[in-house]
């Protein structure tokens, strides 16, 4: 149960990070609190838009969906694996892969690191680990009765 709660809390925190970056992209927040200035470089690059929409907006939507699914899974009386867990695992894995792609762009193409993107990447990584944990445990035969 605590695993699902942690996913919901992390998703909510991630949603605020993405909202922050999205609002900046919309011009509603002046200067990103970044330190290195890499955030401006990344946010202003052509890679901050994906399929015509700001990347940060994908983050807001993705985290919101993870948060909603997390709440649903937390409210499940039965602790066994259910459809919300499957949905979270799929969504979190997709988000993790997308984050890997974005991080590679920062490192090897844009040559600038946005600290908020790193925070988001850490959150996504934590979520995907938590989401896939029961699968890993099951595969080695140690899945607890209430995950």
């Amino acid at each position: 149960m605590r695993r699902r709660q942690a996913i919901a809390v992390l998703a909510l925190a991630g949603m605020f990070v993405s909202l922050y970056l999205w609002l900046h992209k919309l011009g509603l927040i002046g200067v990103l609190q970044c330190g290195t200035g890499g955030c401006d470089t990344v946010q202003a690059s052509s890679y901050s838009v994906f399929l015509g929409l700001p990347v940060a907006l994908y983050g807001v939507v993705g985290y919101a969906a993870l948060f909603a699914l997390g709440l649903v899974s937390v409210r499940q009386a039965d602790g066994s694996w259910g459809w919300p867990d499957t949905a979270i695992a799929v969504l979190a894995t997709t988000a993790f892969l997308f984050t890997l792609y974005l991080t590679a762009l920062e490192l090897f193409v844009i040559h600038a690191i946005c600290r908020w993107c790193v925070v988001s990447a850490a959150i996504v990584t934590a979520i995907v680990v938590l989401a896939l944990l029961p699968i890993g445990r099951r595969s080695i035969g140690t899945v607890p009765p209430n995950s």
């Binding site: 605020f16 922050y20 509603l28 927040i29 002046g30 200067v31």
Partner: peptide, 10 residues
């Protein structure tokens, strides 16, 4: 935090 950041927009 978001409200604070928006209000502090130069």
């Amino acid at each position: 935090w978001l409200v604070y950041s928006a209000r502090n927009k130069p």
